[in-house]
Amino acid sequence: MDRLKIGIGSDHNAFEMKSQLKDYIESLGVEVIDFGCFSPEEIDYPTIAFDVANSIKESKIERGILVCGTGIGMAMAANKVPGVRAAQCHDTYSAERAQLSNNAQIITMGSKVIGIETAKKVVAEYLSVTFEGGNSARKIEQIMQKEAEFSK
């Protein structure tokens, strides 16, 4: 099996957290593609969220981690890319269920909501599980069908 490849991105509010998470994720043996931002200078988050989500859609990466002040804006932006499911997660149970029950390709977090140690635990949990289908596959398919209807 190929090594897991994920994308990571943030706005200026979460630049420090993103940098620390990138190092942490790499220490787990996961390949990380950094989509920015690359400094604490103010930047708008949508472009970064769209870049990560499009990379998932194009199968360049398998999963993504997006961080902004709250995690809300990043989730909203990433979810605008058809076929991509982003879930805001600030605890390990939500991170586990984002993947196991919802096959979320992206999780988002808020650097002004949780600290780095909690963020590391959330990321570790998210990366440790894989969507298994079952009853959840039927529900995800319904979401994807509705999304396709709206895209017409």
Rank of each mutant, 00 (worst) to 15 (best):
residue 14 A to W: 06
residue 17 M to E: 06
residue 3 R to Q: 15
residue 20 Q to E: 15
residue 28 L to R: 14
residue 147 E to P: 09
residue 93 Y to E: 14
residue 138 R to W: 12
residue 5 K to M: 10
residue 35 F to V: 06
residue 20 Q to P: 07
residue 124 A to I: 10
residue 45 Y to I: 02
residue 89 C to G: 08
residue 71 G to M: 02
residue 144 M to Q: 15
residue 91 D to S: 05
residue 27 S to I: 00
residue 7 G to Y: 01
residue 117 E to L: 11
residue 104 A to D: 02
residue 73 G to K: 00
residue 83 G to F: 06
residue 107 I to H: 03
residue 87 A to M: 03
residue 22 K to A: 13
residue 80 K to I: 01
residue 64 G to D: 08
residue 108 T to M: 04
residue 114 I to H: 04
residue 27 S to Y: 03
residue 23 D to S: 13
residue 104 A to Y: 01
residue 69 G to P: 07
residue 139 K to I: 14
residue 134 G to I: 08
residue 128 S to P: 05
residue 66 L to A: 04
residue 122 V to T: 04
residue 53 A to Y: 01
residue 65 I to M: 06
residue 139 K to L: 14
residue 103 N to C: 04
residue 21 L to S: 07
residue 36 G to Y: 07
residue 122 V to N: 03
residue 11 D to N: 13
residue 138 R to T: 14
residue 70 T to L: 02
residue 41 E to H: 10
residue 86 A to H: 00
residue 136 S to H: 15
residue 70 T to I: 02
residue 17 M to W: 04
residue 39 S to Y: 08
residue 49 A to C: 06
residue 123 V to F: 07
residue 58 E to V: 02
residue 78 A to K: 01
residue 152 K to V: 09
residue 134 G to Q: 04
residue 41 E to A: 12
residue 146 K to E: 14
residue 133 G to Y: 07
residue 116 I to C: 01
residue 90 H to F: 13
residue 54 N to E: 13
residue 110 G to D: 05
residue 128 S to I: 10
residue 16 E to W: 09
residue 43 I to S: 11
residue 80 K to V: 07
